[in-house]
């Protein structure tokens, strides 16, 4: 056992865990910190179901090693809602039925939230290309794109 002690900040909370140097950030979030909202669909960075934000940057948690997040800030799907209040994207995803099975949803929400923070007024094409790293097999993306465009419009209006 050559486990390494890692101290990091997840969704605003200071946490620490012991991990094998081969374990990914996704393994650590799910198995050490019990944050199972981030999903493993491929383990190779192709499906985006494990999308999290590391130091403000959207990454696949399966492509980051657990030991790499020492002293850094990680945001996951569990941190999107503020207390009892859902984020507008979460509300609209439910309203638009932008999910069927829901396995890709955490990753798509993380990716989209990050997009809207960078670009509050994306075109449909920009949204589609931003989400090209997030696979959804159920919906054909139609309702996802509509939910995002509507949320972006609402958030712009709300300022």
């Amino acid at each position: 056992m050559n486990n390494i002690h890692v101290r990091t900040k997840v969704n605003g909370d200071e946490v620490d865990f012991l991990c094998d140097p081969r374990e990914t950030l996704l393994d650590c979030l799910r198995d050490k910190l019990h944050l199972t909202g981030s999903k493993e669909g491929c383990g190779t960075g192709d499906c985006g179901a494990c999308s999290v934000v590391l130091e403000g940057r959207l990454v696949c948690a399966c492509l980051v090693l657990g030991v790499e997040v020492e002293g850094q800030t990680v945001d996951t799907v569990e941190g999107i809602a503020q207390g009892q209040d859902l984020h507008p994207l979460q509300e609209k995803f439910i309203k638009y039925a932008a999910l069927q099975c829901g396995i890709c949803t955490p990753g798509i929400l993380m990716a989209t939230k990050n997009l809207l923070e960078r670009n509050p007024n994306p075109t449909e094409t920009e949204v589609r290309y931003w989400l090209a790293g997030n696979l959804c097999r159920c919906t054909g993306y139609d309702k996802i794109i509509r939910a995002i465009m509507d949320t972006a419009a609402d958030m712009r209006e709300a300022g």
Binding site: E40, V77, L89, I94, G102
Partner: peptide, 18 residues
């Protein structure tokens, strides 16, 4: 709205590996 909507947008829903 679907009854399990909140579970599925917050990461609370428990899938096979969870």
């Amino acid at each position: 709205d679907r009854p399990d909507g909140v579970d599925k947008v917050t990461g609370r829903a428990k899938f096979g590996a969870d």
